[in-house]
Design a protein around this nucleic acid. Structure first.
Length: 498
DNA sequence: ATAGGGTTAG
């Protein structure tokens, strides 16, 4: 592009920016496009203008209109650049709008827009984040067919997808991918190791995380603050605060400065281990040090107070947060609402729920789960089930917890048959019952004297490949065996973990 | 322009 053209385009860019900022409604997109092709004889310029228009919409966070422009360009047969399509894809991935990601990707291929490495990696990342690992694998095949070899970023993305997806053997699969990349002579980098370390730590296998950490150093790669944060977080969740602190010292010694994520992890670790005083002290300490604390820091502190039943301190922490111009989010409210419900202060809880409706952050799935749980505990499970409809009206998908709470509610009210209808509804909505669902159900049927049914669910759970946990065994022991009922499941299945 | 860390509910 010549210098004159470059200047022209920068003018176009700023005019388009103004257009997008003010009158860029969908109807305007189409009339704009019409005007463009009617009055311009320079089709190459029109192509570029479409491209800039789309990028400008993306940069202004107006993704619907960006998509509209993308579709229009297609209607008129203008080939957009991969670069601008990629930036739209990235935003759709960030917002979790996978339907749009898949549509744009397919369109790009159909319109023969040169799909590049970044396109592939972005789409693969989106699918991995949505838990659609098989589909992500299909895209990896697509890229191979098009002559592009998966890069270290592709592998890292896929490995992270494995680590973050639930299910048994996920770390085994992640490890297999690591082996595969090494075989293909692609060297794992610092990020590969960070992903694996975090994956093992989250899989309750800090020991494996430390092993990878050592391997990383042996490979001559330098651990970063992120590496340490993953390990510190893992150790804290393991209740091993001392070791976490030692690692923090290591980190400082190797010239790395702990950041707010480090402190949040440690504060959370302290509070989870009932060390409220230490949590509070660390908070005061970092504030004194001048560390900029964020909404997560406050949420951890507020939640610690709420769990300790100290609502007054929770509220003053909330006020301090506002003083420091940190805005509360849904999690902040959720902690407080949960705290009030727990101490039986329904009035205060509802005042906060009203405040959320009026001006606060939008209620999320957790807010509903807390409300539903409180209703169930009051013996109003039927009423709680009605909230499922309100959730979908607000565009929220009930989670496993939502259904599990309802199942527990009916069991607790002595109507396990109603609990079963919730389980069926859950399956209808495409949520597979998990270990907690079965634990609740098994316990519920046992407590209602229906041991045979409970045994049936135990077998069903095993058939589905779900791995019983400590709670399952406790239920079997206390609710079945101590009542003289011996479950007719394979003996080895429950002998192994005792 | 694409990949990695911290909070709430069962």
């Amino acid at each position: 592009m010549s210098f004159a053209n470059e200047r022209k385009y920068s003018k176009i860019r700023s005019s388009l920016h103004k257009f997008v900022k003010h009158g860029g409604k969908p109807i305007a997109v189409s009339s704009f496009c019409n005007a463009l092709i009617t009055f311009s004889s320079n089709l190459c310029a029109v192509r570029v203008i479409f491209d800039i228009l789309m990028v400008t919409y993306v940069n202004n966070g107006n993704l619907d209109l960006a998509l509209e422009a993308f579709k229009r360009a297609g209607d008129y047969g203008f080939k957009l650049s991969a670069r601008s399509c990629n930036s739209m894809l990235q935003m759709f991935v960030k917002e979790g709008k996978m339907g749009n990601v898949e549509f744009v990707y397919k369109e790009m291929v159909r319109r023969r827009i040169m799909v590049n490495m970044i396109t592939y990696n972005t789409v693969i990342n989106g699918l991995c984040k949505a838990g659609k690992l098989n589909k992500a694998g299909d895209i990896v095949e697509d890229m191979k067919v098009c002559g592009l070899a998966p890069s270290v970023i592709t592998f890292n993305t896929m490995i992270d997808g494995c680590c973050k997806k639930g299910g048994s053997g996920k770390m085994y699969k992640a490890d297999a991918l690591l082996k595969e990349m090494v075989e293909k002579r692609i060297s794992p980098n610092e990020i590969t190791y960070n992903i694996l370390i975090d994956g093992f730590c989250k899989d309750c296998n800090v020991a494996a995380g430390i092993r990878i950490f050592k391997e990383m150093k042996e490979q001559g790669l330098r651990p970063s603050v992120i590496t340490y944060n993953s390990l510190i977080n893992g150790l804290c969740n393991d209740g091993n605060i001392d070791e976490a602190m030692r690692l923090r010292d290591d980190m400082v010694e190797s010239g790395l400065e702990p950041n707010i994520v480090t402190y949040n992890a440690i504060m959370h670790g302290l509070s989870k281990n009932n060390m409220l005083k230490e949590t509070q002290e660390l908070f005061d300490d970092i504030v004194k040090q001048g560390v900029v604390v964020n909404v997560i820091t406050f949420n951890i502190l507020i939640d610690a107070y709420c769990k300790a039943g100290n609502m007054d301190e929770a509220v003053s922490a909330c006020n301090l947060m506002l003083e420091r111009m940190v805005l509360p989010n849904a999690s902040t409210y959720n902690s407080l609402i949960g705290g009030y419900f727990r101490e039986g202060n329904t009035k205060a809880a509802h005042e906060l729920l009203d405040e959320m409706k009026e001006k606060g952050p939008r209620a999320d799935v957790v807010t509903y789960n807390i409300r539903i749980d409180a209703m169930c505990k009051r013996g109003e499970t039927r009423k709680a089930v009605k909230l499922l409809d309100e959730m979908s009206q607000n565009g929220l998908n009930p989670s496993h917890v939502t259904y599990n709470v309802l199942v527990a509610g009916y069991c607790h009210q002595g109507i396990p048959s109603a609990a079963l209808t919730v389980k069926r509804r859950m399956e209808r909505e495409g949520k597979r019952p998990n270990v907690v669902t079965y634990n609740v159900l098994i316990k519920g049927f046992c407590e209602n004297g229906k041991l045979e049914d409970a045994n049936r669910f135990l077998n069903e759970m095993l058939e589905k490949g779900l791995v019983p946990n400590r709670t399952t065994y406790d239920i079997i022991k206390e609710e079945m065996m101590e009542k003289g009922f011996f479950p007719d499941i394979d003996g080895h299945l429950y002998n192994a973990s005792f």
